[in-house]
Simulated assay, not measured.
Amino acid sequence: MNATIENILNVTLLEPRQKHPTIFVRFDELNEGESLIIHNDHDPKPLYYQLIGERGNIFSWEYLEEGPEWWKVKISKRNLGEKEETLGEIAVKDLRKAEVFKKYGIDFCCGGKKTVKEACAEKGLDVTKIEQELKLADKSLTSRPIPYTEWSLDFLCDYIVNTHHSYVKQSLPDLVTYATKVEGVHSPQHPELHKIKSLVDEINAELTAHMMKEEIVLFPYIKELVSAKKNEQVLHASHFGTVQNPINMMEMEHEIVGKNLEEIRRLSNNYTLPADSCASYSLLYKMLDEFENDLHLHIHLENNILFPKAVELEQN
């Protein structure tokens, strides 16, 4: 009980000029893995940024209570050997948290190697708010997430082809058709449709060639890797060297398509329909929105699960 009391600091009892210095002293006294809970009568968010600036990324910050009378924050000192998770790693562990990333336009698939703090800094987002929503996602009541990480890599390859490649192949012709049609009718009033049509054409060309390379070269090689390990056979050398080489190319192409879709979302003001839009205009934006959402999961499965596991399998 005494240890718990010692780790609670009511800063409202301190003189204003003593608040932050006292918190810093108490934080510095913490051992790795220990926590300090501060009580305040307003949001102590400025303290978060001061801690980051003066101590670095060596702590976690969790709101236990957020007003209106009390703000209680648990500040925990990280273990020095503890590596901060990336966006991709967070999404791999619990895909529900990807909904938080999507809500704020944070790229967890192509940009999955960044940390939450890095992504928020780039987009000017409130990192404390997003980290709190990620913690709340743990408590959300949803159906059991699909166990992508538990699947064998050969099964995951087939799933990606049969689910996501199939969807892309079915959707691209319609996207090109409606982008062309809407541009032809509405571009005099909405010139951004010229660029949207051009970006859709680029996405069509890029993904068509991209999926072919995956289905003919990369995925069959990953399946051979799985089979060789399972049957304790020697894998024949590939013409591209290690699996990391085609993976590097696939990830680069993912980023190109991801940036094109991000630009379409910006040009369309998050797919907001103008007052003079028609049914085709509405359908185009609806299809683009759905296509982008599917592609986020599609790329997440490859960049954050399939590819790292294939590299690890080949090396072991």
Rank of each mutant, 00 (worst) to 15 (best):
M1L: 11
A3V: 14
A3F: 15
E6T: 13
L14Y: 06
Q18N: 11
F27S: 02
F27W: 04
L30R: 00
E32Q: 10
E34W: 09
S35V: 10
K45C: 12
Y48Q: 05
Y49Q: 09
I52A: 14
G53Q: 14
E54V: 07
E54D: 10
E62H: 06
E65Q: 09
E65G: 04
E65H: 08
E66M: 11
V73R: 02
I75P: 00
L80K: 13
E84K: 12
E85A: 14
T86D: 01
L87R: 02
L87I: 02
A98R: 00
K103E: 08
G105V: 12
I106V: 08
I106A: 01
D107M: 05
F108L: 06
F108W: 04
K113Q: 13
E122Q: 11
G124F: 09
G124Y: 10
D126F: 08
V127Q: 01
T128E: 09
Q132G: 09
K135C: 07
L136W: 11
L141E: 15
S143H: 07
R144C: 13
S152H: 15
D154N: 05
D154R: 02
L156T: 03
L156R: 03
L156P: 05
L156W: 03
V161I: 15
H165E: 08
Y167N: 00
Q170L: 10
S171D: 13
P173Q: 03
D174T: 15
D174W: 12
Y178N: 07
T180V: 06
I196F: 03
S198W: 00
S198L: 05
N204H: 08
T208S: 11
T208H: 08
H210D: 03
M212G: 01
K213A: 07
K213D: 14
K223W: 11
V226A: 01
V226L: 05
V226M: 04
E232I: 06
L235T: 06
L235Y: 09
H236I: 15
G241V: 06
T242E: 15
T242L: 13
V243L: 05
M249K: 08
N260V: 07
I264P: 00
R266V: 15
R266Y: 14
N269I: 10
N269C: 12
N269F: 07
Y271Q: 03
L273F: 04
A279E: 13
S282G: 10
S282F: 04
S282Q: 02
L284F: 00
Y285C: 00
D289T: 09
N293A: 14
D294V: 10
D294A: 09
H296R: 14
H298G: 02
N303H: 07
I305N: 03
P308D: 04
V311L: 13
E314C: 02
E314L: 03
N316P: 10
N316G: 15
